[in-house]
Simulated assay, not measured.
Amino acid sequence: MSTSQGSAPRAGPEAGSAGPSPAPAVDPADQLGRLGRSWVWLFGAAMATLVPGVLMLVWPEATLHVLAVLIGVYLLVIGAFRFVAAFGRGGDRVPGLIVAVLFVLGGVLCLRNPLQTIAALSLIVGAVWLVSGIVTLYTAVATKDMPHRGVVMAVAALGIVAGIVVLALPAESARALTRLLGLWLVLLGLAETAVALAWRSALRRAGIAGRDMSGPAG
């Protein structure tokens, strides 16, 4: 008579507990979002705008070559800040990414030919400020629950005015263009500093929950 055989216990690593679960994969977009929501990141972008403006005002005799390189580096750095800030915003990231690409493209054009004419440099900077201001203003108007929405809209309007002034008032010399761009960079840098400090205030009032809030428009 044959005896029935039960299922033999499994040997090997399967017999024991499953062991520690693997660590979750790090999402690059989430990491960029956390960085973009930091008020320190916004403050860094403001300083990246303010410092070149101060340099231009205290160094008005800079040559056109130096001015083009300085503006090109400024646009590239701000493009990188805007790219990360786009991931820190809730909702649609496309407007922020468009602004970031616009700044990077303007920086590449300035650095590609540093010996270009004053008119060409004015056209690049004015167009970047005008279009980025319009996109940022549209984002602020469309995002009803944006913290400190009025401040962001004011900064966007300032960028639009800066772009119009630079495009409408062509400078006849590198010295005049340096003063004009330096003045607007200082004004924009101060306005962006106000946005960063307002965002810090909002995060402090919200406490720990504020870390998960979506940042202002990039």
Rank of each mutant, 00 (worst) to 15 (best):
A217I: 05
P20W: 06
R211N: 07
R149V: 01
L181Y: 08
M153S: 15
S173K: 07
L197S: 01
V195G: 01
V104T: 12
P9L: 13
R112I: 06
A119R: 14
Q5I: 12
A86F: 02
R93F: 06
A85S: 15
P20I: 01
L187D: 05
L181P: 02
A68N: 15
A68C: 13
L203A: 01
A45L: 14
G6C: 14
V152C: 12
L177G: 01
G53A: 06
R82Y: 08
A196W: 02
Q116C: 08
I78E: 09
F83S: 00
A198H: 09
G96A: 03
V152D: 09
V54W: 13
F43P: 02
V186I: 14
R175T: 12
S214K: 04
A8P: 12
A140M: 03
L75K: 00
S173M: 03
S132L: 10
G12C: 10
V155G: 05
R34Q: 04
A86Q: 01
G210N: 01
G210F: 11
A162S: 10
G36V: 00
A29P: 01
G33K: 00
A140V: 07
F43Q: 01
V165F: 11
T143G: 07
A80K: 00
I208R: 12
A157R: 04
A100I: 02
V165Q: 02
T178E: 07
T49I: 02
W184F: 14
V128T: 02
L55E: 03
P60T: 12
A11F: 11
R112P: 02
L188P: 02
A196F: 05
P24Y: 09
V152R: 03
Q116A: 12
G182A: 00
V40S: 01
L55G: 10
A15V: 06
G182S: 06
S17G: 11
P22I: 09
G133M: 00
F81E: 09
R179E: 13
W59K: 11
R200L: 11
H148G: 07
R10Y: 10
K144V: 07
P114N: 09
A196R: 03
A174D: 06
S21E: 15
G19M: 09
V77W: 04
V131A: 08
S21M: 13
V94H: 10
S4C: 09
A176R: 08
T178A: 12
A206H: 10
A25Y: 00
R175V: 15
V186Q: 04
Q5M: 09
Q5N: 08
Y74N: 14
A168D: 07
E14S: 10
G218C: 05
R179T: 12
I78K: 00
P147G: 06
S38N: 14
A206L: 11
L64D: 04
S214F: 11
G44V: 02
V135F: 11
S38F: 09
F87I: 05
V58K: 12
R205T: 15
R37L: 05
I208M: 09
T178F: 10
A142F: 06
G106W: 06
L185A: 12
W184G: 05
A198G: 15
A127P: 00
G150A: 08
V99C: 07
L105Q: 05
I124E: 00
